[in-house]
Computed example of a mutant assay.
Amino acid sequence: MKVFNGVTTQSIRKKDLNRVVIETLHNEGRSLRYIANYLDFSKTTIFNELAS
Rank of each mutant, 00 (worst) to 15 (best):
Val3Cys: 10
Lys15Cys: 04
Val7His: 11
Ala51Leu: 05
Val21Glu: 02
Ile46Glu: 01
Glu23Ile: 06
Phe47Arg: 13
Asn48Tyr: 11
Tyr38Glu: 14
Phe41Asp: 00
Leu50Pro: 00
Asn27Pro: 02
Ile12Cys: 04
Glu49Phe: 01
Tyr38Asn: 11
Lys43Leu: 03
Ser11Gln: 11
Asn5Gln: 13
Val3Trp: 03
Asn37Trp: 10
Leu32Trp: 11
Leu50Ile: 02
Arg30Pro: 01
Arg19Lys: 14
Asn27Phe: 10
Phe41Leu: 10
Ala36His: 10
Arg30Phe: 09
Lys14Ser: 07
Asn48His: 06
Leu50Asn: 00
Arg30Ile: 01
Thr44Asp: 05
Arg33Trp: 07
Lys15Tyr: 09
Phe4Pro: 01
Asn18Asp: 11
Glu49Met: 06
Ile46Gln: 02
Val3Thr: 12
Ser31Ala: 08
Lys2Gln: 08
Asn37Arg: 15
Phe41Asn: 01
Asp16Pro: 01
Ile46Val: 15
Arg30Gly: 04
Arg30Glu: 12
Asn48Cys: 07
Ile12Gln: 01
Leu50Trp: 00
Asp40Cys: 09
Val20Glu: 15
His26Gln: 06
Val7Gln: 11
Val20Phe: 06
Val21Leu: 13
Met1His: 06
Gly29Asp: 11
Thr8Cys: 10
Thr44Val: 13
Val3Ile: 15
Asn5Gly: 03
Thr45Met: 02
Arg19Ser: 11
Asn48Gly: 06
Ala36Val: 12
Thr24Ser: 15
Lys14His: 05
Ala36Leu: 12
Ile35Tyr: 12
Val3Gly: 05
Ser31Pro: 10
Phe41Lys: 04
Ala51Ser: 04
Leu32Asn: 13
Ala51Asp: 03
Asn5Tyr: 05
Asn27Gln: 14
Ile22Gln: 02
Asn37Val: 12
Phe47Trp: 15
Ser52Lys: 14
Asn27Lys: 15
Asp40Val: 03
Ser31Val: 09
Ile22Arg: 00
Arg13His: 13
Phe47Met: 08
Thr44Ser: 11
Asp16Cys: 07
Gly6Trp: 01
Ile35Leu: 07
Asn18Val: 00
Met1Phe: 01
Ile22Phe: 09
Glu49Cys: 08
Asn48Leu: 07
Ile35Met: 04
Val3Ala: 07
Phe41Ile: 01
Leu50His: 03
Leu17Val: 04
Lys43Met: 06
Thr8Phe: 11
Lys15Gln: 14
Arg19Asp: 07
Leu39Asn: 04
Val7Gly: 00
Phe4Trp: 13
Ser42Asp: 10
Ser52Phe: 00
Thr8Ile: 08
Asp16Met: 11
Phe47Asn: 10
Ile46Lys: 02
Leu25Asp: 03
Thr45Glu: 07
Arg19Met: 10
Asp16Gly: 14
Val7Met: 04
Arg30Trp: 05
Arg33His: 15
Asn18Tyr: 10
Ile12His: 05
His26Ser: 14
Gly29Ala: 09
Arg19His: 10
Thr8Met: 08
Gly29Pro: 12
Leu17Gln: 14
Glu49Arg: 13
Lys14Gln: 12
Ile12Ala: 05
Ile46His: 05
Arg33Pro: 00
Asn5Arg: 15
Ile46Met: 00
Arg13Leu: 14
Ile12Phe: 07
Glu28Gly: 08
Ile46Thr: 05
Met1Arg: 08
Lys14Val: 12
Leu25Ile: 05
Ser52Ile: 06
Gln10Thr: 15
Met1Val: 05
Phe41Ser: 00
Gly6Val: 02
Leu25Ser: 00
